[in-house]
């Protein structure tokens, strides 16, 4: 479990991993389990599970609404951890990481308890969205103690001299945010991704994944060609879950959509 599991997962992969983002508990706890089953059938390789937060300042409208639905259904950080447990029981080889704002992980209870609990549930890594390397020491140490890797974010406007600082703090993989702006769909795939990925690789041997704004099979194909180790799709999947929530879509159609995204890989 944990960091070593992620390492094993990325080692000797022949093609980039497909990583799906969903908000835990959107629209309900039970439905999330069903949705994960469909995602796995659709061919995803890893799950990025968002803990819903009342004030998600890095998220676009689709993910904001998703968080709201999950909160309305009674989701708490504690229940998210339980959900990891349930998902792992059914899909023991599916790596699962949390995507969360630091307040939920470190200040709902305390970070020590949080890390111990998620480790116990079998979580493999943590993406702490609002944690920058300069502030990361205490959190990183605690995560490491529990065998949890931290995912570090590099943005398109990150200066090269800063990339080393960021990759030094990462212990799980590096997430290249291919777009400035918040999460959400975009028309085309971002430019210069390959170039940026190569710069990141100068400073780290960790896997590098790309995300933000990837929403179609064409985007996935373009992302794969940029030589990344993984591709994250979030809002596009969450949009389909929104349809499930308001009864205009089905879990089956979500599965079909995800299959269309994983197919090019």
């Amino acid at each position: 479990m944990g960091k070593s599991n992620i390492k094993r997962f990325f080692t000797n992969r022949e093609k980039p991993a497909f990583i799906a983002y969903i908000t835990a508990g959107d629209p309900t706890y039970e439905k999330s389990i069903e949705i994960v089953d469909a995602l796995v059938k659709g061919g995803i390789d890893m799950l990025e599970l968002g803990i819903p937060f009342s004030d998600p300042l890095a998220d676009g409208e689709v993910n904001q609404r998703s968080a709201q639905r999950a909160l309305n259904s009674g989701m708490t950080p504690e229940r998210c951890i339980k959900l990891v447990n349930d998902i792992k029981a059914k899909h023991k080889d599916l790596p699962v990481i949390f995507y969360t704002y630091l307040n939920l992980a470190a200040y709902a209870q305390d970070f020590k308890k949080f890390c111990a609990a998620v480790n116990g549930a079998g979580l493999d890594g943590l993406l702490l969205l609002d944690l920058i390397p300069e502030e990361s020491r205490e959190y990183r140490e605690e995560a490491e103690k529990n065998g949890l890797g931290l995912v570090a974010l590099v943005a398109p406007n990150t200066k090269e001299q800063r990339i080393k600082k960021i990759t030094d703090y990462a212990s799980c993989f590096v997430y290249y945010v291919s777009r400035e702006g918040v999460t959400g769909k975009r028309k085309g795939f971002a430019e210069n991704v390959e170039k940026k990925i190569n710069i990141i690789r100068k400073y780290t041997d960790l896997p590098v994944v790309v995300g933000f704004g990837i929403s179609s099979p064409e985007h996935v194909k373009a992302a794969a060609e940029s030589g990344v180790d993984g591709i994250v799709v979030g809002s596009a999947i969450v949009s389909k879950i929104q349809k499930i929530a308001d009864n205009t879509g089905t879990v089956e159609s979500l599965k079909k959509f995800v299959s269309s995204l994983t197919e090019p890989l």
Partner: peptide
């Protein structure tokens, strides 16, 4: 301190 997404750092 400074607790923001990396995109805001520049």
């Amino acid at each position: 301190g400074c607790f923001v997404p990396e995109t805001l750092i520049p």
